[in-house]
Write a protein that binds this DNA or RNA. Structure first.
Lengths: 211, 211
DNA sequence: AGTTCGTGCGAACATCCGTTCGGTGGGTGG
DNA sequence: CCACCCACCGAACGGATGTTCGCACGAACT
């Protein structure tokens, strides 16, 4: 990539600022004024240069048809993950699967899609307590889950215990005619229950520990 | 917030799609064609309604002066955190502080600013090994650090050990005339060294465990 | 029936805006 | 010196675009 002139760097910087502020690209004359350039043709000239050098993309004949390329311009896919509540504190959580959580005045966490790797309908829960401490999931962590109705042995899942009316995060084991829900905390006992009593809500994907 | 008519929902949906694709807002006539509306004035009319209802913001007299409000439109502050390398595997890492990491062909991780809470110049490292396992930092985790030259007792810091020429993530303790670098792994021994031999690179902020 | 209001239509207008073109000046190489 | 290229300038052209205005149609209400 060639070196760019002072004027071109100015324009690029102006583009970033403008986009940051207004959320739509500047017109050529906006750039002209913003960078103190005397003619629109000069802007056009340098814009072409910038396009040749791969910093921007232009849609000809279209007003404000400038797209900023590169890390700062290309907006990464952002997903707003709803934080549906807390888990392992004994509180029931609403079921996310088929629900439309459209008018969510609830809390959300924005993450980039690398964190959920293309999975669908991911939701998040705030972890209360240390029942999964040995799986390196601490109190206060945020766990990301994908909706699931079934699990394999050893999966970390959020399950609803019908008789208790609560949801908890545990490792899941199917043992003969019963289910073992194993906390990852040696001071805590596993929960044994009948398959009919558990309803799997989601499967663990990843976790984040805020500062 | 009032209910919006079918046409208004169409327009809103078209706005999202268009922005997603082109990275600049559509013109009124783009919307007209895209939504199969017969007149530009109808688009204008519904756009005004959408503005009243708080879904968009318009800059009058400006082409494509439409800003999408709300979760999907308002782009959260995204930070591209450079992943400078791995840590605790004994590899030296470049110092991030005053360097300009502008032409970073290196790997980056995009995160929302909640994850670093307004800190400056945050960088990230990929954790190799389990030396901090008891601090719930596992092999493969990504840790976020802020540049720092000093630390308080108990801080988790990335330090450069001059004599070994390597960087490691440990808990930091200043004990009299020596420094103790304590792994959070009972099978591993602390490192004792002279204050002059350690150079603190960064302080632990938060961590993320990919799936 | 008459009125009002929300919504839609089509056309015209004024401006915004990308593009083009002729021209200038400085630097470089023949 | 001349030719050539790069960067720049000013003006004008024409298409793109936001805005406005008169009108129409149906639903709700008096």
């Amino acid at each position: 990539m060639k070196e760019l002139s002072g004027k071109q760097a100015d324009i690029l910087e102006f583009l970033r600022k403008f986009l940051e502020e207004k959320d739509y690209p500047p017109s050529i004359r906006d750039i002209q004024e913003g960078c103190g350039i005397s003619s629109t043709s000069v802007v056009d000239y340098n814009l072409r240069k910038l396009e040749e050098k791969g910093h921007i993309r232009r849609d000809r004949e279209i007003s404000r048809g400038i797209e900023l390329l590169g890390a700062r311009g290309r907006r990464p896919r952002i997903l707003e993950i709803p934080v549906l509540g807390s888990i392992a504190a004994g509180q029931p959580i609403p079921v996310p699967s088929s629900e439309r959580w459209s008018n969510d005045s609830e809390e959300t966490v924005a993450v980039t899609e690398d964190m959920v790797r293309g999975r669908e309908n991911v939701f998040a829960l705030r972890v209360k307590g240390t029942s999964m401490i040995e799986d390196l999931i601490d109190d206060g962590d945020i766990v990301f889950l994908e909706p699931a109705r079934s699990a394999s042995n050893g999966d970390r899942v959020a399950v609803w215990l019908k008789d208790r009316g609560e949801v908890t995060l545990k490792r899941f084991y199917h043992e003969g005619d019963r289910i073992r829900l194993q906390p990852a905390n040696s001071t805590m006992e596993p929960i044994y229950t009948a398959p009919g009593n558990v309803e799997i809500q989601g499967r663990f994907i990843s976790s984040f520990r805020p500062s």
